[in-house]
Simulated scan of single mutants.
Amino acid sequence: MKALAWLALAGLSCMAAADGQTQFAQKANATDVERYEYATNLDIARVIHTENIPDDICEVVPIHIFYEDSHGERHTLEYSVMGGHF
């Protein structure tokens, strides 16, 4: 739970992304996507981009975060969030 809270805070603090970073987000392959689970050990040194939470959906949806680890390698992580429509 602690890691998920950190993940959410990190995503909110890094919403602005440069064009090159956005292109990285668009190039992510479905096979390269890691799926977040409660026991996932996260090594996030820098958040590159996070997808916006949809405002028009009232259900749990997958969201992606694109980040670099402490070794400079880029990763795509998928996790679930509740849509913003209440």
Rank of each mutant, 00 (worst) to 15 (best):
R46D: 12
H71T: 13
L77Y: 06
L12M: 12
A45I: 06
A17T: 05
T31G: 08
H85Q: 15
M1T: 08
A17I: 00
L4H: 03
C58S: 15
E51A: 03
Q26K: 15
A45P: 00
V60Q: 14
T31I: 14
E68A: 14
C58D: 13
A10N: 07
C14P: 00
A18T: 09
I65T: 12
D55T: 11
T31H: 13
V47Q: 01
E37G: 06
A3W: 01
I63M: 06
D32W: 07
W6C: 07
A17P: 02
S80W: 11
A30R: 13
I57G: 03
P54D: 04
A17C: 07
V60W: 07
N29A: 15
G83L: 08
Q23M: 10
H85I: 08
I44L: 02
D69G: 10
E78N: 10
V61P: 00
D55I: 12
L42G: 03
H64N: 13
I65H: 02
W6G: 07
T22W: 07
G11D: 04
P62K: 08
I48N: 06
E68T: 10
T76Q: 12
V47F: 05
L42K: 01
H49M: 10
D32P: 02
R35Y: 12
H85F: 15
A8G: 03
Y67P: 04
R35T: 15
K27R: 14
I65Y: 08
Q21G: 01
K27I: 00
E59C: 13
T76F: 05
Y38T: 09
V33Y: 00
A5R: 01
V47A: 06
N52Q: 13
H64I: 11
Y36V: 00
H49E: 09
Q21M: 07
V81M: 12
L77E: 05
Y38N: 04
I63L: 09
L77S: 06
Y79C: 04
K27A: 13
A8S: 08
L12Y: 10
T76H: 04
